[in-house]
Design a protein around this nucleic acid. Structure first.
Lengths: 190, 190
DNA sequence: CGTCTATTTGAATGTACTCAAAAGCGGTGG
DNA sequence: CCACCGCTTTTGAGTACATTCAAATAGACG
């Protein structure tokens, strides 16, 4: 359970009235397991902050196979960035993997924040920079490592998720089929 | 040949004195082909804007094989974002693929800009958002598409680079060996 | 022209996928 | 509380896509 204000306080300092104003723009939402929050073809209007629980973002390819693009656990943000910033329909699905407590910020409100409290421009710049670094590292891993090593990298980065998610979602995240993932696990100790 | 001020003017409007101040923080550099601008293990101090020519960023894996992470042609920025923002040694090499005309902005100066002209905070937020979208799309492509389709995607996105770069760099970018790339080309018309 | 690097080609190999079927597991209702 | 249903995981056999290694050819640059 990570609070949104704590998350923000890591990077910028807000006055009490700013905090209040910010929270007035944020919506709360609780969802149960396997609830769909965004579908391919929809415009993504919100950045979602995960207070507790876990969401996952994925696409469907032309064969109907899922590809997990990202997990968001407590303290993380998730959205279809493409759709959010272009305001065009995106290709991402976002679904809860567990029951979850969320906070939502519309792009519209976000841009209002940028105008009215420039510190938020900084906050989201930093957030986006960090996200970019993580995403680029994943590309490096995908190009340089075999499936086994990508899995080890995954459990290093998300140790808690290993036991909380169905294997097939982890398999999809590292880019292998569930069948191959299962065989790979057999050959890994523990 | 894309000027840096034009690049900025796409997203924010600067006063004349702000432009002048900005340019006073920017360094110029001309490089010939195959010049190394950043090496693994070094701290990356600059964001590099490519005025003309083409740079490429790559890593070396434990077998010594190159993996091209990004190309930057005229009008694009490139840096080892991880190293730039953490100020720790990175794993990226940056090298010129052609002779190139560059403009350099140190992270230090960039942060000075953020303080003194908050519009730059916005500019780089937007730049980083766009970069994140492109990077995520590449992950989606890597997970969803076969090598042939990734190549077609590449020439759609970088039509000009197809004929200007050695095949092995394109092969590396899309994530296949030069040998396989060659065989794949044989089976593609033209 | 000669040297160095990039590209092509071929054969053998490997890593991961497909398809099909069985086994396991969790939730739900009788 | 047990039985059943649906979904996930496992297993195996056959296959496909891409790699490795080695050698020949082509191109670029001094």
């Amino acid at each position: 359970m990570e609070s949104l204000l704590n998350n923000i306080a890591r990077y910028i300092q807000l006055e009490d009235d700013e905090k209040e104003y910010f929270l007035s723009l944020v919506g709360e939402k609780k969802v149960r397991r396997k609830q769909l929050l965004l579908q391919e073809g929809e415009v993504c209007h919100h950045s979602i902050f995960v207070k507790s629980g876990c969401l996952r973002g994925y696409t469907l390819d032309k064969n109907g196979d899922e590809h997990v693009i990202s997990f968001a656990t407590a303290g993380w943000w998730i959205a279809d960035m493409y759709s959010l910033i272009t305001r065009k329909p995106g290709q991402l699905f976002i679904e809860s993997s567990t029951e979850a407590h969320l906070q939502l910020l519309t792009r519209e409100h976000q841009e209002k924040l940028f105008e009215q409290i420039p510190k938020f421009e900084r906050f989201f710049r930093i957030l986006t920079e960090n996200s970019l670094v993580a995403t680029q590292q994943r590309i490096i891993d995908n190009l340089s490592l075999g499936a086994r090593e990508r899995y080890l990298e995954f459990i290093r980065k998300y140790p808690s998720l290993k036991d909380e998610l169905p294997q097939k979602h982890i398999a999809s995240y590292i880019g292998v089929t569930p069948e191959f993932f299962s065989k790979m696990m057999r050959s890994l100790p523990e």
